[in-house]
Nucleic acid binder design. Structure first.
Lengths: 359, 359
DNA sequence: CATTTTTGTTGGATCGATTCAAATGTCCGC
DNA sequence: GCGGACATTTGAATCGATCCAACAAAAATG
C-alpha cells in the first residue's frame, strides 16, 4: 500500500522540505550543505521534517548543475567495456588511475566508444570532468570525438604527432632498440616481427609503403627502433617479415602461421605487445617448438602476467601503473596546459630468450 | 591571444547560440536533439553559428537535470577502487555487468565507499540510476548507505535475511555440501576450514558463539553446509578448526600457521573462497607439503585463475559472470519490484583434491 | 540608550538544458 | 477571399539544487 503510493508520488524536493518546515529554500539547502551556519533548533526541525517525509538528501543532479564539477574522470576506449577488466595492460593502467582517484576522492566512469548507436552513454554524454583516452587502436577517432567535448583529456600512448593534445607515453624507439639488441647479442640473426597495426583495421604482412604511411606513430617508432638496432648488427632488415595483427588471438595466430610457412623460420621473434608474445609462446609450444631453445621471444609492455607464464616472458617494461597515475592526476589537477610526458622503459630479461642455436 | 580570451570567457551556452542565430532557445535545442523537426535552412544556420562560436554541443549537465535519467549504473564496494581490477572474482562479475551495459548503451561508474571523507565521490553523490553492491565485507553498511539514496539497487551475495532488498546470490548451503561431500568421499576425515568473516573485522579461530551470532549469513550458510554434510559421514564437526580470515594474504597465512600448529594436521582444507584456497596452495607448497598428496583443498567461487594455478583448483563454481549480467539488468530494467534470485553452483573437480592418504 | 557587530534567515538569480501549449505562417482548395 | 490543414517557431515553465546580497534580530560595545 505504502509502496503503491510511493510509486505514484514524484520524488520529494528540497523545496518541499523547506515549505513543510516553514523555512526558505536557502536555509533548507544550508541544513544539508553547511549545517554549521544554521541555528541548531532550525536545523533539527528541518532534518526531522526531511526524515519524516522520506527525503533522500539533496539530489546530485541538481547540485551538479550549480557546482559545475562532477568530481569524476572518464576513461574511454574504442573497445567494449569488458576490455577494462580483461586486458592485463588495461588493468595495470586502471590500477594507477584508481589510485589517483582514490587519493582525491574522485570517481571513475567507464566509457566505451565501441557502440555507435544514438542511445549510447558515450563520450558525448558522459558526466565527467575530463577523459583519459586508451588510444590502442582507432586512437585518432577517439581523440577527435573527445576534442568536441571541450573537456580536458589526456591520450595514453603518444601515438600522434599532434602536439596540441596532452599525452603520456613511453620512448618507443628506445624500448624497441633494447629488445632488438638483447636478441642480437644472444647471437640471433633470423628475426620475425609481430607488429601492432600501422593504420585502422589492417592485418597481414606489412610492406614498406604501409610502414611509411603509418598513422599510428607508436607502431612506426617501435619498428624503427627494431630496424635501427638490428642494422647495427649487420642484419638485413628488408628481409625481416613484419606481420601486422590486431593484438588479439586470431590475427596473431594467423601471423605466426604465415611467418612459419615461409622458407627459413626465425630463431627470434620481436612482439610489439606482451599479449601477442604470450599468444606466440602458446602457439610455439603447441607446435612442439621449444621456447627459448628453438625460438626466443621478447614482448613489449611489461604486464604482470608476463612474469607468470611458462617460460616467463622477457619484455620491455613500461611503467604502466605510473602512467595511469599520472594521467589521472593530469585531469584532476588540470590547469589548461598541454603536457606531453615520455616515460622510460626497461628491459626485463626472463626465460623466454636464450642464445641462438649454433648452425 | 585567442587562448587568453578563451581562458577568460565562460563556456558558451545553448542560449548564446540561439541569440546569435536569431532563434528561440526552443528551436536551438531542437536543432541538436530533434533536428528533423527544424526547417533545413534554420538548422544549418544554427549549426553554422554553433560551429563558429565553438559550441561543444548541449551540456550533459543541463540535459541531465531535465531528463532525470543518467543512463549509467554505479557499482559500489567498500574496498578501494583498484579492487575492481585486481580481484578475480570482481573482474568476472564486472565482465557480466559490462556486457549488460554495453548491450543497452549504459555507462558504468565505479564507486568506492572505502573513503569516509566528505569530499569523496561516493554513494551519496554518484550520478547513476541505480547501484550494484559488492557485499563482500561490510555489506550491511553498504546497503544502509545505499538505501538512503532511494535509488534502485541490488546486492550481490544475498548475505542478509532482509527480504526487502533485491539480491542475487548462490545457494551457499548446497555449494558447501558439495565441497564437503567430495572430500569425504575421497576418504578424508581430518578437516580444517578457512572461513570468511562472520562479522566485521574479525579474524582468528571462530567459536560456536561467534558462528551463532553471525551477521554475514553467507558465511554462516557455507559453514552450516560443510558441517551438515560432514556429520553424515560421521565426522565430529566440533573438532574442526574454523579460522576466520579477511580473504586476503596476511590473515589467510596466519590462519594456516595456526591450523598447522595444532596437534593433528588436517588432510583436507575447505576454503570459503578461491582466493584463500590459492593462497593456501602456495603456503602448503612453500612448506614442502604436496597438494593433493598431503593435503587436499577445495575452494569456493570458481574464478578463472583457479584453472591456471598449479595444481589446478577443485572448487565450487558460481556462475559469476551470469550473476553480474543479471544484476546489471535488474537495475537497467528496474520496475520497482524486489527480486531475490538464487543461482545454482557446481562442483568442478580439478587436481587440488585427491584420495586421503592411508593411515 | 544609541550604535555597531554578530548571527541567522530570506528570496531572487543562476546553473544549462528540454518540453509543450500556443502562436505564427504557408499553402491549398473551393 | 476565406477556412482548414499542416509545418515551424516561440517563450514561459520546469528540472533540483546553490549562492549571495540584503535584511532582521539579537548581542556586544561605548
Amino acid at each position: 500500500m505504502a509502496s503503491l503510493l510511493e510509486g505514484q508520488a514524484r520524488p520529494i524536493r528540497l523545496a518541499d522540505i523547506a515549505k513543510a518546515a516553514g523555512v526558505s529554500h536557502g536555509t533548507a539547502s544550508n541544513v544539508f550543505s553547511r549545517p554549521e551556519i544554521v541555528r541548531a533548533e532550525v536545523r533539527e526541525r528541518v532534518k526531522a521534517v526531511a526524515e519524516q517525509m522520506g527525503y533522500a538528501g539533496p539530489d546530485p543532479k541538481g547540485r551538479l548543475l550549480r557546482a559545475g564539477k562532477v568530481n569524476a574522470i572518464g576513461v574511454a576506449t574504442t573497445e567494449p567495456l569488458s576490455y577494462f577488466f580483461d586486458d592485463p595492460f588495461a588493468r595495470a593502467m586502471m590500477a594507477g588511475i584508481s589510485e589517483a582517484c582514490d587519493a582525491t576522492g574522485a570517481g571513475i566512469a567507464l566509457v566505451s566508444a565501441a557502440n555507435q548507436e544514438k542511445l549510447a552513454w558515450n563520450i558525448q554524454s558522459a558526466l565527467v570532468d575530463g577523459f583519459v583516452l586508451f588510444c590502442i587502436e582507432g586512437g585518432s577517432r577517439l581523440v577527435d570525438l573527445t576534442r568536441e567535448r571541450k573537456l580536458p583529456f589526456v591520450a595514453l600512448e603518444l601515438g600522434f604527432q599532434d602536439e596540441t593534445v596532452s599525452a603520456i607515453g613511453v620512448d618507443n624507439v628506445a624500448g624497441a632498440r633494447l629488445a632488438a639488441r638483447h636478441l642480437a647479442e644472444l647471437g640471433h640473426r633470423r628475426f620475425a616481427i609481430l607488429s601492432l597495426g600501422f593504420a585502422d583495421n589492417r592485418t597481414g604482412f606489412a610492406t614498406p609503403e604501409v610502414v611509411r604511411s603509418a598513422v599510428y606513430t607508436g607502431t612506426r617508432d617501435r619498428l624503427a627502433g627494431y630496424f635501427e638496432e638490428l642494422s647495427r648488427f649487420g642484419v638485413d632488415t628488408t628481409k625481416i617479415p613484419v606481420y601486422e595483427t590486431e593484438n588479439e588471438e586470431r590475427s596473431t595466430r594467423a601471423g605466426l602461421e604465415a611467418i612459419f610457412a615461409k622458407g627459413e623460420p626465425p630463431t627470434a621473434i620481436l612482439a610489439m605487445s606482451d599479449r601477442m608474445a604470450l599468444i606466440a609462446i602458446d602457439w610455439l609450444k603447441a607446435r612442439g617448438l621449444d621456447v627459448p631453445g628453438d625460438v626466443s621471444i621478447v614482448g613489449f609492455d611489461g604486464v604482470p602476467d608476463g612474469a607468470l607464464c611458462i617460460p616467463p616472458l622477457t619484455t620491455i617494461a613500461q611503467p604502466i601503473t605510473e602512467i595511469g597515475r599520472r594521467a589521472a592526476r593530469m585531469i584532476l589537477d588540470h590547469d589548461g596546459a598541454v603536457r606531453r610526458e615520455t616515460m622510460g622503459v626497461e628491459l626485463i630479461v626472463r626465460a623466454s630468450t636464450g642464445p641462438a642455436r649454433k648452425g
